[in-house]
Amino acid sequence: KYFGTAKARYDFCARDRSELSLKEGDIIKILNKKGQQGWWRGEIYGRVGWFPANYVEEDYS
């Protein structure tokens, strides 16, 4: 189950295995919004990890 999707506004390079690298334009499935302050958990291309919420724009459609 996921909470919708978000589109990456910027590139983000994961610093460890718990984080999710993003490329601008990627569409991420949002799995959890209750991580550390400002971090969401998501899935993209079969990978799961945490990413900074301010790097994405949530899709409300």
Results as ranks from 00 to 15, higher is better:
Phe3Thr: 13
Lys34Gly: 13
Thr5Asp: 08
Gly46Ala: 03
Glu43Phe: 02
Ile27Cys: 10
Asn54His: 10
Tyr45Asn: 15
Glu19Arg: 00
Tyr10Asn: 07
Ile27Arg: 10
Ala8Phe: 02
Pro52Cys: 00
Phe12Cys: 02
Ile30Lys: 00
Gln37Glu: 14
Leu31His: 08
Phe3Asp: 08
Ser61Lys: 10
Ala53Ser: 12
Cys13Asn: 15
Tyr10Pro: 01
Asp26Glu: 10
Pro52His: 03
Tyr60Thr: 14
Thr5Asn: 11
Cys13Gly: 08
Ile44Ala: 15
Tyr10Phe: 14
Lys34Glu: 15
Phe3Gln: 11
Tyr2Trp: 07
Gly38Thr: 03
Ala53Ile: 08
Glu43Asn: 07
Lys34Ile: 06
Glu57Leu: 10
Ile44Gln: 05
Gly38Asp: 08
Leu31Cys: 06
Ala53Thr: 09
Asn54Gly: 13
Gln36Phe: 11
Tyr10Asp: 08
Gly46Tyr: 00
Ile44Leu: 15
Glu57Asn: 10
Arg17Lys: 15
Ile28Asn: 01
Arg9Ser: 07
Glu24Gln: 13
Tyr10Cys: 07
Gln36His: 14
Asp59Phe: 13
Glu43Leu: 05
Gly42Ile: 02
Tyr55Ala: 15
Arg9Phe: 14
Glu57Ile: 12
Lys34Tyr: 10
Trp50Asp: 05
Asp11Trp: 03
Asp11Gly: 09
Val56Ser: 01
Asp59Thr: 14
Asn32Met: 09
Ala8Asp: 01
Cys13Met: 11
Tyr2Met: 12
Arg9Cys: 07
Lys29Thr: 12
Gln37Ile: 08
Val48His: 06
Gly46Ser: 07
Arg9Lys: 15
Arg9Pro: 00
Leu31Thr: 11
Asp26Tyr: 06
Asp11Thr: 08
Trp50Met: 07
Lys33His: 03
Lys33Phe: 04
Tyr60Asn: 10
Glu43Trp: 02
Phe12His: 13
Tyr10His: 15
Ala6Arg: 01
Gly4Glu: 08
Arg17Ala: 15
Leu20Glu: 01
Gly49Trp: 02
Gly42Phe: 00
Val56Thr: 02
Ile44Arg: 11
Ala8Val: 13
Ile44Pro: 05
Asp11Leu: 04
Asp59Lys: 15
Pro52Gln: 05
Gly42Tyr: 04
Asn32Thr: 11
Glu19Thr: 01
Gly25Gln: 00
